[in-house]
Simulated scan of single mutants.
Amino acid sequence: MAPRRWYTVTAGMDLRTALVTLRLRHPFGLSRGTVSELPSLLVRLDPGDPDGAAADGPDRRGLGEAAPVRYLGQSAAAAAPLAVAIAAELAPEILTDPRAITAAGARMRELAPAHSAARCAVDTALWDAAARARGLPLAELLADPDVLDRAGLDRHVLSATSGAAVTSYTIALDELPAMAARAAAAAHLPVLKIKLGKDRDFDRAAARAVAAAAPRARLRVDANGGWTPDDVRDLLPLLVDLGVEQLEQPLPAGRPDLLAALARDCPLPIYADEDVQGPADVAALRGRVAGINVKLMKCGGISPALAMIAAARENGLRVLVGCMIESRVGLAAGAALARLADEADLDAHMLTRADPMPPGSQERLAPDLPRLCGPGLGVPPGALPADGDPEPARVA
């Protein structure tokens, strides 16, 4: 399917977007259902010059992505006009001032209060363009103490970790033979995340099957809110016996009291995902969970993700940086934050096929973080899909 495109000219910047379909290598199941493909919106901000760069300077265009948070009712198509509205209020001068980029988040929330992914697309594009304008990889820009200070963030709090070294790989809910086969194919990887939350009998069998197929892998379990407290208590002995090291969002979101009660007696560290959407949600989880999952799409981009990480450190929580089903654009943004996190779950490039953004989807299963070389995110701004583009790039 050819990507749909929107275009708007703003006062000093223009915004181009492309709605693309990300197809999954295997059915991707979790407690809320199963998908085989998902739409995503890619955006590019151009700060004035038609070619995105001065004759003697770097390419200053920035890329971003809105992979919608479906359980919040978001869609990729709805993100396009919202991203346009946000970009219409930006001026190129914002790229020179990290504090202005982070401060723009308040206006973004006013314009797109219910669509964090739309805000994420523009915020990420701003940071990408700011890094490109300086000729720096985004990860280096975010590690600059002066930049963090100017963005109003505590450099000491944000640097309180050695950083995530590898990504986990997801074994999604599926038929038991399929889950076992995928675990066997990924048995050489250091960390596997098992999606559970179907029913107790199935979840027991699935956990056993994955553990048997990948006996040397460290195991983590993500129920995506699909369990009750009784489910967790019933399944815990098996999970402990199998060596599971982490339990993510076992209960439905919205009951932090139940999550806290469960965590008090749970021998496994519990991480919150759906229960923590942005910086304002972090403090309430202090002492209730061991860590939080920071995803750019649900919090609204790099600026609020930095604030979430800082809040987590201030409240004694560990940080897992995760992803939705995203292209290389969103993944590269997540990878730029990995040095500020304790763990990473950035594996969408190994879950998709025919990612339209270079270097494309990756067939080889490897634990390496999806960092890319070059300034900004490392994805060429000129790669934004357009009608008639050639087949997407692929990585062996």
Results as ranks from 00 to 15, higher is better:
Ala143Tyr: 03
Asp154Phe: 14
Asp144Arg: 08
Ala104Ile: 03
Thr96Ser: 11
Ile94Glu: 03
Ala114Met: 09
Ser159Lys: 04
Val157Pro: 00
Ser116Thr: 11
Arg150Pro: 01
Ala112Gln: 04
Asp123Arg: 11
Asp154Asn: 15
Glu93Tyr: 07
Ala164Lys: 07
Pro137Thr: 01
Asp144Glu: 12
Cys120Tyr: 05
Arg99Ala: 13
Glu140Phe: 00
Asp123His: 12
Arg134Ser: 12
Ala100Trp: 10
Val122Tyr: 02
Gly163Leu: 12
Asp146Ala: 15
Leu95Pro: 09
Leu148His: 00
Ala129Asn: 06
Gly135Trp: 00
Ser159His: 07
Leu158Ile: 05
Arg109Gly: 05
Ala103Tyr: 02
Ala130Phe: 10
Thr161Lys: 10
Thr102Asp: 07
Pro137Asn: 02
Asp149Tyr: 00
Ala104Asn: 14
Ala139Gln: 08
Pro92His: 08
Arg109Thr: 13
Leu142Glu: 06
Ala129Val: 08
Ala133Cys: 04
Glu140Ala: 10
Leu136Tyr: 06
Ala100Tyr: 02
Ala103Gln: 10
Ala133Val: 02
Pro98Trp: 05
Trp127His: 14
Ala131Glu: 02
Glu93Val: 12
Asp123Val: 13
Leu142Phe: 09
Asp128Ile: 00
Arg99Leu: 06
Arg107Ile: 12
Ala139Ser: 15
Arg109Leu: 13
Trp127Pro: 04
Ala117Asn: 08
Ala131Leu: 11
Ile101Phe: 10
Ala164Arg: 09
Ala139Glu: 09
Pro145Phe: 08
Ile101Ser: 05
Val147Asn: 00
Thr102Met: 07
Ala129Gln: 07
Ala133Trp: 08
Leu95Ile: 11
Met108Thr: 01
Cys120Ile: 07
Ser162Asn: 01
Ala133Met: 10
Asp123Met: 12
Asp128Glu: 00
Leu142Met: 07
Ala106Tyr: 08
Val157His: 14
Ala143Met: 11
Ser116Lys: 09
Gly105Asn: 08
Ile94Phe: 12
Gly135Pro: 02
Gly105Lys: 03
Thr102Leu: 10
Arg132Ser: 00
Leu136Lys: 09
Gly152His: 06
Arg132Glu: 01
Leu141Phe: 08
Pro92Val: 15
Thr124Val: 15
Ala133Phe: 00
Thr102Val: 15
Thr96Ala: 12
Ala130Asp: 02
Ala139Phe: 06
Ala117Asp: 08
Leu141Ile: 06
Ala114Gly: 04
Met108Gly: 06
Ala164Ser: 10
Ala139Asn: 09
Ala117Phe: 11
His156Met: 12
